[in-house]
């Protein structure tokens, strides 16, 4: 992400302006539209127009726009930041620990956090004026209604290709990741935004979890956790036609590693389960090793949520799959169902 989308330092922007700036820098216009529909905000087809719409929606006295408040705009922006398109690694905790974790988090909700990223949140920090060290910084602890979200900024410094031996080509970038603790389930969800380059996902997931543990365990208490292995989900979803259509699947043979990609991302009703792959040479059996499910939104909204399990082939061969990716969940409740169902099949 560039440093262009930042708050100008000349005039102090209003909260609404900061929120809109932050929303725009997510690059999630179409998902903002999905979330905005819950409040009545009119997210347009370009950000400039959206800013005008939202200003009108907030000022409007029409009862149609009664939920269009600055507070709800803040909720909207948080929702987009914590759930637009993320890789989830999930840790189960005991019921007793979950209760304690929620208690400790509740005390932090709404408390000011003293760092430049928290002060600038949800807008991005201008790296022309500050030069922070790479690492993880807590931005906000928010009560989302169905759980508590700890939003972190991860700062990455990396060299442009070809500039690895020079300091001149070092680019600093900022990504928002989240640790979410639901009220109704005893687990910790580490959500890594897909905006961050893939090669940082695992590193960030580990760093964010440690940061989170430091926050809740100020007294040195670290809660024992069990990481969920989604390996079994892949076959389970592949064989279960009620779980959504398969927009993309990779099948493979264990004997000779011949992959078959079944895929159509352009047809709205394609499902890989309608295709059969046959090995004509040895009659080897094909099994599914990666899967992208699409589930339609409910109600009047059109659109689909993406749920995918794409472990590296080498990881899959070892019977592991450590994360699930979810794109554009219709609601927080729908997202919760997806995660709960995946854990049940794991």
């Amino acid at each position: 992400m560039s440093s262009a989308a930042t708050v100008p330092s000349t005039a102090t922007p209003t909260k609404q302006q900061v929120l809109l700036k932050g929303l725009e820098s997510t690059g999630e216009q179409s998902f903002a539209r999905v979330v905005g529909a819950n409040y009545g905000f009119r997210i347009s087809n370009r950000w400039e127009k959206t800013a005008v719409n939202i200003d009108e929606d907030i000022k409007s006295t029409n009862s149609k726009y009664q939920n269009c408040t600055v507070d709800n705009l803040e909720n909207l922006v948080d929702r987009v930041i914590i759930s637009a398109n993320h890789h989830y690694t999930i840790y189960k905790v005991s019921q007793k620990d979950a209760i304690q974790i929620r208690q400790e988090l509740s005390a932090l909700v709404g408390q000011p956090v003293n760092n430049i990223f928290a002060q600038t949140y949800p807008a991005l920090v201008d790296f022309n004026s500050v030069n922070p060290a790479a690492g993880e910084y807590l931005c906000k602890v928010a009560d989302m209604g169905d759980g508590i979200a700890c939003i972190f900024a991860s700062i990455v410094k990396e060299s442009l290709p070809g500039y690895r031996t020079m300091t001149a080509g070092v680019i600093t970038s900022q990504y928002f990741h989240t640790v979410f603790v639901p009220y109704a389930a005893d687990r910790i969800e580490v959500r890594i935004t897909d905006n961050a380059p893939t090669r940082y996902h695992e590193k960030h997931a580990t760093a964010i979890k440690i940061e989170f543990q430091n926050i809740i365990g100020q007294k040195g208490v670290h809660y024992p956790t069990t990481q969920v292995n989604f390996f079994k989900c892949i076959e389970s979803y592949f064989n279960d036609p009620t779980s959504g259509r398969i927009a993309h699947a990779i099948l493979t043979t264990g004997q000779d590693s011949k992959d078959a990609e079944l895929k159509s991302l352009r047809s709205k009703d394609y499902c890989a389960r309608t295709q059969q792959v046959v090995d004509k040479k040895n009659n080897f059996n094909y099994v599914c090793r990666a899967i992208l499910l699409r589930k339609p939104y409910t109600g009047i909204s059109t659109g689909e949520m993406d749920i995918s399990f794409f472990p590296h082939k080498n990881t899959w061969e070892a019977n592991f799959c450590w994360c699930v990716q979810v794109k554009k969940p219709q609601t927080s409740a729908a997202l919760n169902l997806i995660i709960t169902d995946a854990i049940a099949r794991s």
Binding site: G254, Q255, D256, S257, N282, F284, K313, N314, E317, A318, N319
Partner: peptide, 12 residues
């Protein structure tokens, strides 16, 4: 016993 198996990742 399995001359058709041509691929051996670590797990195999």
């Amino acid at each position: 016993d399995n001359p058709d198996h041509t691929y051996y990742p670590i797990t195999k």
